[in-house]
């Protein structure tokens, strides 16, 4: 798959503080790439460097196969940016905002009108096109913020925490829109504080901390990096304490406990001993009413790798 965005050993310092420390990433075309990290990890610095708002001290950034140092201005036409802060003209209507930004990308006439309609329908704001964004809720402004970045149909969209501070309904709407956008072939670089969003959306994730990429992979790969055990929880009826001895004897099981009707078994990972544990339960005459394999969430992985939660 073609690489649409690549950073090679990017270094950026602010007054001696290392904001980006040899960041190297390769982002293939057509994916939703998640970039996560706690505050001050360097996410926004990296994004600003990619959109050439910030000059890097060393390294190289390639967008659409062109180095940012030598790329002509026209490469920007293929790039869309959804800034973290809402970036709209409050004194212009919704339509005028899109018309203005569309024209800056050289769109004119019917093409411009079509694109504006498409972008506004995409974020479900077409009916409100003549309204002023002043009257909009935070969620609607966020949606318009996205539409402004999409009006010129970019191939690569960089979204810097596009769902900050909005209600769950608007958030779900935005996430669904992003998925559709990606299905239509747009590559997306997505940063968020919300782990569940990144888990839901991103096939490929990088964790940034102290300006360095400390982990990179799919959600499962990241989990595997830090997981040393897994937890099996069963809801039972007709339990007997004798089953605990059987379960504890299964290969790989590190601990087992039975509390009321709930059996919790902790095993080493990749042992594949579930069948044997189930056999123990059934042999003890218990009935399995529910079974759940608790896997590490991205939040757990993040916490393990960085030693702090995402909002720290």
């Amino acid at each position: 798959m073609q690489i649409i965005l690549e950073t090679k050993d990017v270094v950026k310092r602010y007054n001696g503080l290392l904001a980006l420390d040899n960041v190297s990433l390769r982002i293939p075309e057509g994916c939703i790439f998640g970039l996560i990290g706690p505050n001050g990890a360097g996410k926004t610095t990296l994004i600003n460097a990619i959109i050439s708002m910030t000059k890097i001290d060393s390294g190289e950034i390639m967008v659409f196969g062109q180095s940012l140092d030598t790329a002509d201005r026209e490469f920007k036409a293929k790039l869309g940016v959804v800034p973290q802060e809402i970036a709209l003209y409050d004194d212009l209507s919704v339509y005028q905002n899109l018309d203005f930004f569309g024209r800056l990308y050289g769109l004119r006439g019917i093409k411009l009108k079509e694109n504006i309609k498409e972008a506004l329908e995409f974020v479900d704001l077409w009916e409100r096109r003549n309204d002023s964004p002043k009257r909009f809720s935070g969620g609607m402004k966020r949606r318009l913020n996205i539409a402004c970045a999409l009006v010129h149909r970019p191939e690569l969209v960089i979204m810097d925490e596009p769902t900050v501070g909005i209600d769950p309904q608007s958030r779900n709407h935005i996430l669904a829109s992003i998925r559709r956008l990606n299905e239509n072939g747009t590559t997306i670089v997505y940063t968020s504080h919300y782990m569940d969003e990144v888990e839901q959306l991103c096939a490929d994730i990088a964790i940034l901390d102290h300006g360095r990429v400390i982990a990179r992979g799919t959600k499962e790969q990241l989990a595997d990096m830090v997981a040393v055990e897994e937890k099996l929880v069963m809801r039972l009826s007709g339990t007997s304490y004798t089953l605990l001895d059987c379960v504890k004897g299964v290969q790989g099981v590190k601990a087992a406990k039975l509390e009321s009707n709930r059996l919790t078994v902790v095993s080493r990972i990749r042992i594949n001993n579930i069948n044997k544990i189930i056999d123990c339960v059934l042999d003890a005459g218990a009935i399995i009413e529910g079974i759940n394999m608790e896997r590490l969430t991205l939040g757990d992985v993040f916490l393990t790798l960085t030693g702090r939660s995402l909002r720290d």
Partner: peptide
């Protein structure tokens, strides 16, 4: 103030 400088900066205009 309106953060639109990011959009203007990333648009293909001098």
């Amino acid at each position: 103030d309106m953060n639109t400088h990011v959009r203007l900066h990333t648009a293909p205009i001098s």
